[in-house]
């Protein structure tokens, strides 16, 4: 049972993800509560947070918290760049920047999906994982800017014309639907529900992945670690039973919250004034 896993995420990265996860769900719930306040479903969610007005207060404070986290993450990112090898390091194998290689891998992966070709030789980050990362990055900027404009509308209309708030409102709304749809359907399914990861991919909670899984699913990364003699340093043990139970509880709580918001949002979408 020991020494069977490879480190994939550091403690700081997992903390970022945990905070993002909690605040994303809070933003989704409070935002949808207000959007769906005309329906019993929306009123139920609003009740959880203390009503229509409190939902907005929480939404704004959590939003500012997320932006602060985003700022910290941005500086974390700057600190993490390998400046000695810059700018070549940005195109390295451990970089999350989208690279030409990702287009090739995506193409090979599609061929695998339709059964023409074997599993591609993925490295540390799959193209869909990189897309997830940059989708959040871009979403943070869009949601943050429009959210601040709307939250402080009297002040922001000194910078932009007031009708810009009409535009910001729709940008905020569509980007929110895109973000929630992507996370609650695509991210959850690929991360946890597809057969090879079911019932849950604990990598982002535990920080490590099974060594044999890596050998099969990310062969290029495994061979790179082996070749550079990094494998020994990257190997770690599996979390204990108690910690794994916590991972499952947190992960599934998040997933059921997300699915509740997704399904309720779709079912009630015809009953609200858009």
């Amino acid at each position: 049972m020991n020494n069977t896993r490879i480190r994939r995420f550091t403690a700081v990265q997992r903390l970022f993800h945990l905070l993002l996860m909690a605040s994303f769900l809070a933003q989704g719930a409070t935002g949808l509560a207000r959007m769906y306040i005309e329906t019993p479903w929306g009123q139920y969610i609003a009740w959880v947070f203390g009503g229509y007005e409190y939902c907005l207060t929480i939404h704004i404070y959590v939003g500012i918290f997320m932006l602060a986290g985003f700022l910290v993450h941005f500086f974390y990112l700057l600190a993490k760049i390998d400046w000695k090898g810059f700018p070549g390091s940005l195109m390295g194998r451990d970089s999350v920047l989208l690279q030409p290689r990702d287009a090739k891998e995506a193409y090979e992966h599609v061929l695998w999906l339709i059964g023409i070709r074997g599993w591609p030789r993925f490295d540390r980050w799959g193209y869909w994982e990189k897309f997830d990362y940059w989708a959040v990055f871009w979403g943070m900027v869009i949601m943050g800017v429009t959210g601040l404009l709307l939250a402080f509308s009297v002040s922001s209309s000194r910078i932009i014309p007031g009708w810009g708030l009409n535009v910001a409102f729709w940008v905020h709304r569509i980007e929110a639907i895109l973000a929630m749809g992507h996370v609650f359907i695509i991210h959850f399914f690929i991360g946890h529900l597809r057969r090879h990861n079911f019932p849950m991919d604990k990598a982002m909670f535990e920080g490590s992945v099974d060594i044999d899984s890596v050998r099969h699913e990310r062969p290029a990364w495994y061979e790179r670690l082996e070749k550079n003699d990094d494998l020994k340093g990257a190997i770690t043990t599996e979390a204990g039973r108690g910690r794994r139970a916590v991972f499952y509880a947190v992960g599934y709580l998040a997933m059921f919250t997300g699915l509740f918001l997704l399904i309720g949002g779709i079912l009630n979408s015809a009953a609200i004034t858009w």
Partner: peptide, 16 residues
């Protein structure tokens, strides 16, 4: 498609 494809392909055995 990914979901369907993995239903057809058993995951290789892993140790942990």
């Amino acid at each position: 498609l990914w979901g369907i494809r993995e239903l057809l392909a058993r995951k290789k055995e892993t140790s942990s």
